[in-house]
C-alpha cells in the first residue's frame, strides 16, 4: 500500500498538469515575451504597452486574453521592461498605436496587419512563428522555447542581438 500511494499520486499529478498549463502559464509566457524584447537591437526599455490581440468570436482566444490581462495586471516587470497591457481586437490591429509589441492569442492571425504597421508579434503557440504569422513564439513550460521567424522579423524591421539568435531556434 505504501508503495502504491506515491505512484498513484504522481500519476494523478502528471494527468492534471497538461489541462492546466494553457492558462496557468500565461504569466510565465509573458515574462519570456517581455524579456525577449530586450534582446532586440535598439529594443524597448522602461514602461511599455503590450497589445493583447484576441478574437471576440473565439472563446479560447478571449479566455487567453483575459488570462494575459490578469497576469500583467497593473504592471509586470520583465527584465529592463515594465509591461502594461491593453486588449486589441484582431480586426483593430491595423489601427493600433502606442504598443511595443502585440501578444497574439492562440488561433488568431494578424500577421499581415502587423507587418503593415511594422509591429512585432509574439505568439504563445509555436505554430504562430513557424507559419510566419508571428515574428516570435514563446513558451515557458516545460522548458523555455523561443522561435523567431526570420522572414517575419525582417518584414517588420526587427533585428535581434547575435548572442540571442545563437540561443534560440530560427525558422
Amino acid at each position: 500500500m505504501s508503495k502504491k500511494k506515491p505512484a498513484a499520486a504522481l500519476a494523478a499529478a502528471l494527468l492534471t498538469i497538461a489541462p492546466l498549463s494553457a492558462h496557468a502559464d500565461a504569466a510565465k509566457d509573458l515574462q519570456i515575451a517581455g524579456r525577449a524584447l530586450t534582446f532586440l537591437e535598439n529594443g524597448p526599455t522602461g514602461k511599455q504597452v503590450l497589445g493583447i490581440v484576441f478574437d471576440p468570436s473565439k472563446p479560447a482566444s478571449v479566455a487567453e486574453k483575459n488570462a494575459a490581462m490578469a497576469a500583467i495586471g497593473g504592471g509586470m516587470s520583465a527584465g529592463a521592461l515594465t509591461l502594461t497591457a491593453k486588449p486589441v481586437e484582431a480586426s483593430a490591429v491595423s489601427g493600433v498605436s502606442g504598443v511595443a509589441a502585440l501578444y497574439v492569442t492562440t488561433g488568431v492571425n494578424v500577421g499581415a496587419a502587423a507587418k503593415a504597421k511594422k509591429i512585432i508579434t509574439i505568439g504563445s503557440d509555436a505554430s504562430c512563428a513557424a507559419s510566419g504569422a508571428c515574428v516570435m513564439s514563446v513558451s515557458a513550460d516545460p522548458k523555455v522555447e523561443i522561435i523567431v521567424n526570420r522572414s517575419a522579423a525582417a518584414a517588420v524591421g526587427a533585428v535581434f542581438k547575435s548572442a540571442f539568435r545563437m540561443m534560440i531556434r530560427e525558422v
Binding site: I32, R35, K143, K161, A163, M166, M167
Partner: peptide, 27 residues
C-alpha cells in the same frame, strides 16, 4: 548596446544557466 554576454539576463530569460565554455558560442 551590449557586446559581452549578459549572463544574468540570459539566465533569467531561459530559466537556466548559459555558458560560452562549451564551444565559444553562447549556449
Amino acid at each position: 548596446n551590449a557586446q559581452s554576454i549578459d549572463y544574468g539576463s540570459l539566465e533569467q530569460l531561459f530559466n537556466e544557466p548559459v555558458t560560452t565554455s562549451a564551444t565559444g558560442a553562447p549556449q
